[in-house]
Structure formats: C-alpha cells, structure tokens
C-alpha cells in the first residue's frame, strides 16, 4: 500500500489507515459526497453501496475465521436470520464459481489456494450487491490462468449484479481487456483520461506514451522499449508544476512553474499537459 493508486482506492471508502487522512477534494458516490459522511453513514455505504477487492487475498482474509463467517458478517443486517444468511453465503460463493460452496464456507483461508482466496474475497464484496466494486490489483498476486479466470468472473459479475467496477492496475493488457474508460495516474494525480480505445490508440500525455511504449511486442522482438529516466518523486514533497516534468522527454520551462490545465483532445478524452494546453491559457 505504498503507491498513489492504492491509497486513492482506500480513500474512496475512507479506509486509509492512521495517520493518513483526506485533506482535500470530494468523493461522490450515488450523488452523495462520501468524504463528508459520518463514520456511521460511511459504514452504511460500505455495507450497501461500495465494496473493495484487494491485491493479495491471503493477507486480507482473517486467518482465524472461516470463509463463511467472513462473508456472513458483511450481510448480517440484511439477513438477520441465521439460515437465510447461510443460504446467502452459499449463494455468494456459488456466484463466484467456487465448487462445493457448502464445504468451502466451513474452511479457513489457509486451506484454500490463492485463486480460491481471491474468489472468496470477491464473494464477500459482491454478497452485498454493491453498486460499485473497487478492485485494487486483484490479479497481480495470481498466476496467468487464474488471473484470466478472475478477470472474466469480474466482468460477468458486473452484468449479473449491475455493478460498476473500478479496476486499479499497472497491467496494461488487463486494463485494455476489462475497462471501458481509463484514468492514467502519475504521482497520485490523474494526467490523462478517456475511453480505453482513445487512450491506447492516441495517447496524448508523454507519460501515457512512455507507458504504452514499455509494452513488449511479441511480433516485433527487436523494437526498443521506451525507458523513463529517474524514479518516482517523493510524494510528501512532489515537484512543483507538472509532477512529471523532471522525467518528461518533452518538458518545457513552463512545466516546472505551473500545473497544466486540463485540455480536451476529443470527446471524453482529456489530458493535463502543457503540450496540449490552449494557447490562450498558456499565455
């Protein structure tokens, strides 16, 4: 939980551990500003509206409670009767394609494989039928075949439950196959956003270009990869102006002085970069 993406994800549900806190900005979910809710209201949001899936399920499941118990506690207010709750737990495990859900509900996390643990975490999230699921690198800890199964499962659940999915990933192939809209973040700020197709075909920000240039192309083995010099800035003291300017191949004097204003490339495709700034604003 070091990167800007994961902290952003946790912030959305106000789960950033102490001493972290939300300093500025707002988070709107289903028309309400989540950042202004009371702790109690926030718990209601987590129960009913938004759930989260994490990178390494084995660390996110409590080792000493059964899978069934860990799913059940999130839906306790919805199913006060024990029998209904149990049925809902089995149903949730079934919906994430876990075989023999009755038995798996009684098992403990250490008795499951990594892929099964991730399915259990997803079941705990989707059992609450949330309108939004935030998935933070949900497949990074898994091997390729399981990764594919989990991604397909998430897509299927999206239509089954009718939930929106925020997928946080650095895996460009995963993003391209799952997402309809992409937000590119650098140093905890959005630098470019747009429909997935536009971002991949027509990247506007130098950082996005560098990211796409770092993909290995199996058909063109000798193609040189784009290399970005330098390292991620210290987020407690980010660079002035555009946060990317110290590493940007196209940096201009203005980049270190002021934050670039948002510019529209095409419908829904926005970039924050001085290269694309309107002349009127730049002047």
């Amino acid at each position: 939980m070091s990167g800007g993406k994961s902290v952003t994800a946790l912030s959305l549900l106000r789960l950033v551990p102490m001493p972290g806190r939300i300093v500025a900005g707002s988070i709107t979910l289903n028309g309400r500003d989540v950042s202004r809710l009371s702790d109690d209201e926030m718990r209601g949001v987590r129960r009913n509206e938004a759930a989260m899936i994490f990178q390494d399920a084995s660390n996110f499941l409590n080792p000493i409670f059964s899978i069934g118990d860990q799913i059940a506690e999130g839906i306790a207010d919805r199913f006060p009767s024990k029998r209904e709750r149990r049925a809902a737990v089995i149903e949730a495990l079934h919906s994430v394609r876990i075989p023999d859900p009755e038995r798996v509900a009684t098992l403990y996390p250490f008795q499951l494989s990594g892929g099964m643990q991730q399915r259990a975490v997803i079941a705990a999230a989707t059992a609450r039928k949330p309108s939004l699921v935030i998935a933070d690198e949900p497949t990074t800890a898994l091997d390729a075949t399981v990764q594919f199964q989990i991604l397909r499962l998430l897509e299927e659940l999206q239509t089954e439950i009718g939930m929106s999915l925020i997928l946080i990933s650095h895996d460009l192939a995963v993003i391209a196959s799952v997402c309809s809209r992409v937000y590119v973040m650098y140093a905890a700020e959005i630098v470019e956003s747009g429909p997935t197709r536009d971002i991949y075909r027509n990247p506007a920000h130098p950082y996005t270009k560098a990211l796409l240039g770092s993909i290995l192309d199996p058909l063109e083995e000798r193609k040189p990869l784009t290399i970005l010099e330098g390292a991620m800035p210290d987020l407690s003291a980010p660079p002035q102006g555009c946060r990317f300017h110290p590493r940007c191949p196209a940096a201009m004097p203005i980049c270190s002085q002021a934050k670039p204003p948002p510019a529209t490339i095409s419908s829904g495709h926005q970039v924050n970069c001085w290269l694309h700034a309107e002349p009127a604003v730049a002047a």
Partner: peptide, 21 residues
Amino acid sequence: LEYIIFARSKGISERAVVYRH
C-alpha cells in the same frame, strides 16, 4: 494488518473490527 482493512471495508462496526477481528 491488511485483514483489518478488509474487515472495515465490509462496513461492520469498529467494535467488531477491534474485538472480533
């Protein structure tokens, strides 16, 4: 630990997070 974050993300009371988990 991470499983405390997961427990919180389920919207259960802070008391349950601290005393149960």
